[in-house]
């Protein structure tokens, strides 16, 4: 069935739930038609066609017995892009080529939507995903940031450990592959580095790492920015003593999310920060220290917020729908 009206395209994946449904529901209530595209279902369950000739181009998306032409897409919500999921029946030696070609097709397909309003633009998301750039710009707008070292030099890591008086954490600039092995996933969360770990620091020569001073925390904040609106959830650090370092780790008893009001000065800096990246959406992490200082950690331009909507009833989905439907230059 070909949908006849203009649509808002929701770019996501088959594992997405709650947040995507809330935004779709909010868009429907506002009288527009959402169309969900699960990127990992391409090419097996989603069909894309792109026609080009000398006078025009014409593209269609088909999935779940519905089809749209990209001319109908006025607005795009760039929620997530996942790698194509191919079945085991495919000969393994062709798997990589099929994935690569499918991803290239999707990348090309987004170009057919260049006239649409995106939340957010893919190039801006990529630009903002650079964690070192985030720290530089955070510092420029006046945020406090942790002392940070990025190095593949063992001696530098050891000296930094002394500089921060042995209170050091580590992380990577990029995500590990979602699955380093079939049926299991490995993650690297922000981890405490102990002195004995550094006995093996020579192995940094194979891959650099990010080291930061461990910031004492009273609260950990997830701040969600949507087109000038700010939504905040706070976790009390003493509620998840076992983790102390990374509340995002599964199985960490985080306690209840709580409402939190950011100081005006932090909000002003936040808006300047988002303005520098040209982003309409972002999920940011901050630490509030025992002395009440707000320390910027990072921004995820496509970060999570469902727990804040669900537990704190913050109207984030509605704000995203409003941002999607706002006219250009409004």
């Amino acid at each position: 069935m070909h949908l006849s009206r203009d649509v808002v395209l929701l770019i996501t994946h088959s594992g997405d739930f709650f947040t995507i449904d809330r935004v779709a529901e909010s868009l429907s209530k506002k009288g527009v038609q959402p169309f969900r595209l699960d990127t990992d279902k391409f090419p097996l369950e989603v069909q894309l066609t792109a026609h080009f000739d000398k006078s025009k181009s014409y593209h269609t998306i088909e999935c779940n017995n519905h089809s749209i032409s990209t001319e109908q897409v006025q607005v795009v919500w760039m929620r997530r892009i996942w790698e194509p999921k191919l079945s085991q029946e495919l000969a393994p030696k062709f798997r990589e080529a099929c994935i690569r070609e499918s991803q290239a097709t999707l990348d090309g397909f987004w170009d057919s939507l260049k006239e649409a309003r995106w939340v957010d633009n893919l190039e801006r998301i990529d630009y903002a995903s650079n964690k070192l750039r985030q720290l530089r710009i955070a510092s420029e707008v006046g945020f406090v940031i942790p002392q940070t070292l990025v190095t593949n030099k063992a001696q530098a890591a050891r000296e930094f450990f002394q500089q921060v008086k042995g209170k050091m954490v580590s992380k990577l600039l990029t995500a590990l592959s979602r699955s380093m092995e079939a049926n299991s996933s490995f993650f690297l969360y922000t981890s405490i580095v102990k002195e004995e770990d550094l006995q093996d620091a020579e192995s940094l020569r194979y891959c650099p790492m990010v080291f930061q001073e461990q910031i004492p925390k009273q609260q950990e904040l997830r701040v969600v920015y949507v087109n000038g609106n700010v939504f905040v959830g706070a976790l009390n650090a003493d509620m998840y003593v076992a983790a102390k370092v990374d509340w995002r780790k599964p199985g960490v008893e985080v306690g209840a999310w709580q409402h939190h009001q950011l100081p005006d000065e932090v909000i002003r800096r936040l808006k300047a920060f988002m303005g520098k990246f040209g982003l309409l959406f972002g999920a940011l992490d901050f630490i509030v220290t025992p002395s009440g200082e707000y320390v910027f950690l990072e921004i995820n331009p496509v970060g999570e917020w469902g727990m804040l909507e669900k537990d704190l009833h913050l109207p984030i989905a509605s704000a995203i729908a409003d941002a999607l439907l706002q006219r250009k230059n409004e």
Partner: peptide, 10 residues
């Protein structure tokens, strides 16, 4: 083979 430093925190 050789294990990079980050692997100890996986």
């Amino acid at each position: 083979g050789v294990i990079p430093f980050f692997a100890r925190f996986l």
